[in-house]
């Protein structure tokens, strides 16, 4: 069985040759270690360095970079949809109605101000949710493929929409501008869409995180 330093040398080889994900490297390390152990067992006088050079010669940098990229591209966002159970969909629908109905029935000026209040509260809620998740799940000290699928851009959707509302209506709030109720009712829709998408991603990430923590505990 190869010792810790020998394993670290193999790890460094893959890291230097484009395999940046630790979990992908671990699998290759096991593969290479097994080949080397067989070589060294059948020829006990074979030094580790010779066995190492002979074994890693089979890998080209190009092949390893491609292998790493292929592992990184395997994330399937459709898995996030598992989060949307019937109960959760119903809950989001009720929250949407509770938020949208006042915007729909209120006169323009109070509706715009209520919409702005919703937006501020949403920003605070979403920011706190993201920070709490990061606090609960500190990043591993090495990059893991299983925990490397970012996507925060969906939160831009309500921000852009609120900017549009501010630009089109709120800056002219004193000039009796009439806002179509549907225009305002769309704002909580975008907010809930972004928040639920974030929650779905966090739900999936949490599963990946716990699996990674179980498989590579010393990285956390």
């Amino acid at each position: 069985m190869l010792n810790k330093e020998q394993i670290q040398k193999i790890d460094a080889f893959f890291n230097e040759n484009g395999v940046q994900y630790y979990d992908v490297r671990q699998e290759l390390i096991d593969h290479v270690s097994e080949i080397m152990e067989q070589k060294m067992n059948s020829n006990p006088s074979l030094p580790f360095e010779v066995a190492f050079d002979e074994t890693v010669a089979r890998f080209s940098k190009k092949e390893l970079v491609l292998l790493n990229e292929a592992a990184g591209s395997n994330y399937d966002p459709r898995k996030e949809w598992q989060y949307f159970t019937k109960q959760r969909i119903l809950k989001f629908l009720l929250i949407y109605l509770a938020m949208a109905l006042p915007l729909y029935y209120l006169p323009s000026r109070p509706a715009l101000l209520t919409g702005a209040l919703y937006f501020v509260l949403w920003m605070v809620f979403n920011g706190r949710m993201l920070l709490a998740f990061r606090k609960r799940h500190p990043a591993p000290c090495k990059k893991l493929n299983t925990f490397s699928h970012p996507s925060w851009f969906i939160t831009l959707l309500p921000v852009l929409y609120q900017t549009y509302i501010i630009g089109k209506y709120m800056l002219k709030i004193n000039t009796e501008t009439q806002v179509h109720p549907v225009t305002l009712a769309l704002l909580p829709f975008f907010m809930l869409f972004a928040t639920s998408a974030q929650m779905a991603q966090q739900h999936l990430k949490e599963q990946d995180y716990l699996a990674a923590k179980n498989n590579y505990p010393f990285l956390f």
């Binding site: 992908v24 292929a70 994330y75």
Partner: peptide, 16 residues
């Protein structure tokens, strides 16, 4: 089977 063919296939099948 080369490692360059095997592991991407295993990872894809795992993701699927």
């Amino acid at each position: 089977i080369t490692e360059g063919a095997l592991y991407p296939l295993l990872h894809r099948l795992e993701a699927e």
